[in-house]
């Protein structure tokens, strides 16, 4: 509440259209909203089209890149983050950073231990294992 009034106060008188102004929050103009919507639809068409072009590894990065652009547009304009309090932006970006953190650590690990997996159900695997203590190197009985 300490700084609640000043940012909102600035929005009140900035209208040119003569419309009713909201007591709180920010008003986004129709052209901005429509432009955002159109861009999102266009990007959707592009991302579908790219699916049919074989770019090898690049395909998934392009798809994710377009998705990130779309998500940014939605959050900045539809969700008012461009005009909202920076802390709300921090909340969204922060939560995404934590997802990325989780993804990075998990991916770094998963890539490395795959070769130690022994396919099969647990009881069958146990019969094949030659290990005596927790933490001992896992070897197969030969």
């Amino acid at each position: 509440m300490s700084s609640a009034t000043h940012t909102h106060g600035s929005h009140g008188s900035s209208s040119q259209s003569g419309e009713v102004q909201p007591l709180v929050g920010h008003l986004v103009s129709y052209p901005t909203l429509l432009a955002t919507g159109t861009t999102l639809l266009l990007l959707t068409i592009i991302t579908v089209a790219v699916r049919y072009v074989d770019l090898g590894e690049a395909n998934i990065y392009i798809a994710i890149g377009i998705a990130v652009v779309k998500a940014t547009l939605v959050s900045l304009f539809f969700m008012h983050l461009r005009w909202d309090r920076p802390f709300n932006l921090l909340v969204l970006v922060g939560s995404m950073l934590f997802v990325i953190l989780m993804m990075c650590f998990c991916m770094m690990d998963v890539g490395q231990y795959q070769h130690t997996f022994i396919p099969g159900n647990p009881s069958a695997v146990q019969m094949q294992l030659d290990t005596t203590a927790p933490g001992a190197p896992i070897t197969l009985k030969r």
Binding site: T47, A71, S75
Partner: peptide, 19 residues
């Protein structure tokens, strides 16, 4: 509602658009 849209924006290419 926008975050529901946002999640779908990622789900769509990741499932439907795998080359």
């Amino acid at each position: 509602w926008h975050i529901v849209d946002l999640v779908w924006i990622f789900l769509f290419p990741l499932f439907y658009l795998i080359h």
